Amino acid sequence: MDTEALRSFVRAAELGQLQQAADELGVTQQAVSKRIAVLERELEIRLFTRTARGVELTLDGQAFLPHARSVVAGVERAISAVRPGSRALRIDVLGLRSAQAVILHDYWRSHPGTNLDVVTLKVNDPRVVVAAVEAGDIDASFRTVTDPATLPRDVRMIPAFDSALELLVGPRHPLASARTLTPAQLRRHRIWVPGIAPGSEWADFYDQLATDFDLRIDAAGPHFGDEVLLDTLAESANVATLVGARDRYLWPTNHDLRRIPIVAPTLAYPISLILPRTNPHPGLRPIINHLANLTPLPAATWRPSWATTPRRGDR
Rank of each mutant, 00 (worst) to 15 (best):
L15M: 15
D117S: 13
A52S: 09
S33Y: 12
A52M: 07
R311W: 00
L43T: 02
D154K: 04
G61H: 05
W306Y: 15
V263G: 10
S141E: 01
R187K: 14
A22W: 01
F205Y: 15
S98H: 11
G199F: 05
G54D: 04
L209I: 07
P280M: 05
L294S: 03
R83F: 13
D147R: 07
E42D: 13
I138R: 01
A245F: 03
A21F: 09
T144N: 10
D214H: 12
N238C: 12
A31P: 00
Q29C: 00
L43N: 02
L96D: 04
A240G: 15
L168Q: 08
A164H: 09
V169C: 14
S80M: 09
A240M: 13
S163R: 01
R69K: 15
I288D: 03
P222K: 13
H111F: 06
G74L: 10
E42T: 13
V169Q: 00
L6P: 01
G313P: 03
L25C: 03
D139C: 13
R312I: 00
A237P: 08
V93A: 06
R50G: 07
P171L: 05
G54M: 06
T253R: 15
G199W: 06
V193Y: 02
Q62W: 14
R190E: 13
L47Y: 05
Y269M: 11
L230G: 15
L25E: 02
A132G: 08
T295Q: 10
R277S: 05
L181C: 10
T211Q: 10
S8R: 01
G26P: 00
P112V: 12
D147N: 13
R35Q: 07
V128H: 14
E201R: 02
L39Y: 11
I79F: 08
I191A: 07
R246M: 09
E44P: 01
L96E: 13
A63S: 07
I274V: 12
F213W: 12
E76V: 08
W192N: 06
I196V: 15
D106M: 04
A31N: 03
L294D: 01
R259G: 12
E201D: 12
W251M: 10
K122M: 11
T150Y: 02
N238P: 00
A240I: 06
Q62T: 09
R53C: 08
E56K: 06
A12E: 11
M157Q: 10
D212L: 08
S110N: 07
T266N: 02
L215G: 03
D231W: 06
N124S: 15
A210Y: 03
S200N: 04
T28A: 06
T51V: 10
F142S: 04
H173P: 03
R35P: 01
A292H: 00
Q30C: 00
M157W: 00
